[in-house]
């Protein structure tokens, strides 16, 4: 396999082109790694920085101008704003559940009605998150309903 690295034109963004006759496991793995790296999140605990994979995140919550990242057993802080995270991950399995929460669809165990058109998401780590009425259509869209 030949590897060629070229500098793109000024207007062009960095991109990777894979030219192959047949897609094999190695190439698929490479593509997976590249895709994951693009969406890796930088998270902080005190002054220590961590690289998190989006699939490990249960939800993001904005409180008092801080954005917190909730994983299964750990809590981090993000320097990004909630809307920036939504732009980065909104196309994937994440969706806005309320004004201050972005939730990972794949971490929801079940949904129960919570009056007034709202729903309560029971997460796989046994936490409960409220989904506001105005964001329920978005959830339905994500689920293909």
């Amino acid at each position: 396999m030949k590897i060629i690295v070229e500098e793109p034109d000024e207007q062009e963004e960095d991109h990777v082109i894979i030219r192959c006759r047949q897609m094999d496991d190695t190439l698929l793995q490479m593509i997976q790694i590249l895709k994951r790296k693009q969406k890796t999140l930088v998270a902080y605990q005190e002054t220590t920085a961590f690289m998190l994979q989006p699939e490990d995140v249960f939800y993001f919550e904005a409180v008092d101008n801080h954005v917190f990242i909730y994983c299964k057993d750990s809590l981090y802080e993000s320097k990004q704003k909630l809307y920036e995270i939504e732009l980065l991950l909104g196309e994937d399995q994440f969706f806005r559940a309320s004004k201050s929460v972005i939730l990972n669809l794949r971490k929801i165990k079940s949904l129960t009605p919570a009056f007034s058109g709202r729903f309560e998401a029971n997460l796989k780590n046994n936490e409960k998150i409220m989904i506001s009425r105005q964001y329920v259509p978005l959830l339905k869209q994500k689920l293909g309903l």
Binding site: L105, I108, F119, V136, L143
Partner: peptide, 9 residues
Amino acid sequence: LAEKMNQKL
């Protein structure tokens, strides 16, 4: 609606 969404999940 919750039941439908749970099935999708």
